[in-house]
Nucleic acid binder design. Structure first.
Length: 413
DNA sequence: CGCCTTTGACCCGCGC
DNA sequence: GCGCGGGTCAAAGGCG
């Protein structure tokens, strides 16, 4: 998969800022550029944007061209989220848009799925991650959202222009979507993309009043890459290169099923959050052709704290080689995202055996980089955590912003 | 005993 | 209506 190469920003570039720029500073700078219509500045901040001006006949193809994603034929098979992602891992393609650090937390994504997507909008141009192969797709409907994260790669995200409006209408989300919203502006200025959007909207409008028409269903289904019909909640898809079949993410899961799904000989495992009041589920499967890649799909949002790490428990080893959250003692375990508690952070940070290295607690990332998150799903009754430290590395998005602000605005942060 | 995985059966939505 | 495929259930069994 090309996600391992390309224009990634190496995690070896360690940044330990003596003083971190405030999110407000960044926001103001970006707002300033934005208000001035200085899209170039934004482009400079995110030079990865690489537009292709291809003329294609269909909306899907043009959207694909716009997002530099070779949209596969609209076959039912392509609506299946996972197998297709893994089927062609070798395609390389220049990539646009937002970089997401390899350390980006799936738990955090689960907690803050709106960081990349506003489910209130139904028009879902595909969210593309990292190149020509469909490694990542965001899809949406009126009642669900899917965000796909490509781990150990820089993540390249193309978001629909609608999200800009959403961000603007929601000041909280606007601040949270600092990066994505700004990227959106580029799309908004793109006439071709606006045409695509209009065309799509026309079709949707034409189909209004026919909510169950096959035509409409097909149209919507064609954009549901990465989601399934049963997806009624926010969905976050994480792709990572990992040996563990059940990388730890700070929450405890109970496996309730395993099934071989079409197009992938590797079984998909189904997990539920063990919290009795929590309905969050996830399923995990390996790539059809490259078993090194693991795709973890979270359905729902935790509305509880991650459980405290279990003390002296030892885990069971499943037959497929997966490990549970208990096997810290005997197996190397992957921890994704925020550890259960700050006191256990150091322990958790040791648990990064695969390419998710280096480990990091992503909480301060949100606090310092994109602070003030919208509708915090976890611990909503909690007060906003105090910023006590800045993670020394891994905040590549933040680093890029800083560097670009420095480069383009002469601002030394 | 508690917690977990395993696994076949079952349910349900969708396409034909 | 039927078959397919994804998702879920629940009994059985393993492990510490």
């Amino acid at each position: 998969m090309n996600g391992l190469d390309g224009n990634s920003i190496g995690m070896t570039t360690c940044w330990a800022p003596p003083s971190s720029p405030s999110p407000r500073t960044l926001l103001d700078l970006l707002n300033q550029a934005d208000n001035n219509g200085d899209v170039d500045s934004i482009s400079k901040i995110f030079p990865q944007t690489n537009h292709q001006s291809e003329q294609r006949s269909s909306l899907g193809e043009r959207v694909a061209a716009r997002t530099e994603f070779n949209l596969p034929p609209l076959e039912t098979q392509n609506n299946r989220p996972f197998a297709a992602f893994f089927r062609n891992p070798s395609t390389t393609h220049p990539s646009p848009h937002v970089l997401i650090s390899p350390g980006f937390s799936p738990s955090a994504m689960l907690q803050f799925p709106n960081m990349f997507f506003d489910p209130s909008h139904m028009i879902p141009p595909p969210l593309i991650v990292n190149g020509g192969s469909p490694e990542a797709v965001e899809s949406s409907g009126a009642d669900h959202a899917t965000t796909l994260i490509s781990y150990n790669n820089p993540m390249h995200v193309a978001l629909p222009p609608q999200q800009v409006a959403s961000s603007e209408s929601d000041p909280v989300a606007n601040e949270t979507d600092l990066v994505t919203a700004k990227i959106e502006r580029e799309s908004e200025d793109d006439e071709e993309f606006k045409e695509d959007e209009d065309e799509y909207q026309n079709i949707v409008d034409e189909l209004d009043g026919e909510p169950s028409s096959p035509k409409r269903r097909k149209l919507e289904g064609s954009t549901m890459i990465g989601a399934t019909r049963s997806c009624k909640s926010q969905r976050v898809i994480i792709q990572l290169e990992c040996e563990e079949n059940n990388p730890e993410d700070g929450f405890r899961w109970r496996k309730y099923g395993q099934k071989v799904v079409h197009g992938n000989p590797n079984p998909r495992s189904y997990y539920k959050c063990t919290n009795t009041a929590c309905t969050v589920k996830k399923h995990v499967e390996r790539g059809a052709e490259n078993v090194k890649f693991l795709l973890v799909t979270y359905d729902g949002i935790h509305e509880h704290d991650p459980p405290a790490a279990r003390g002296s428990t030892s885990g069971q080893k499943s037959q497929d080689g997966s490990s549970t959250s208990q096997d810290h003692n005997n197996h190397r375990t992957v921890r994704l995202g925020r550890p259960p508690s700050s006191s256990s952070a150091s322990q958790a940070l040791r648990l990064f055996p695969c390419s998710l290295d280096p480990p990091m607690d992503m909480t301060p990332f949100y606090i310092t980089g994109f602070a003030k998150l919208p509708s915090l799903p976890v611990n909503q009754n909690h007060t906003e955590p105090k910023i006590e430290r800045v993670i020394p590395d891994g905040t590549e998005v933040f680093k890029v912003i800083r560097d670009r602000l420095n480069l383009n605005f002469g601002l030394s942060l």
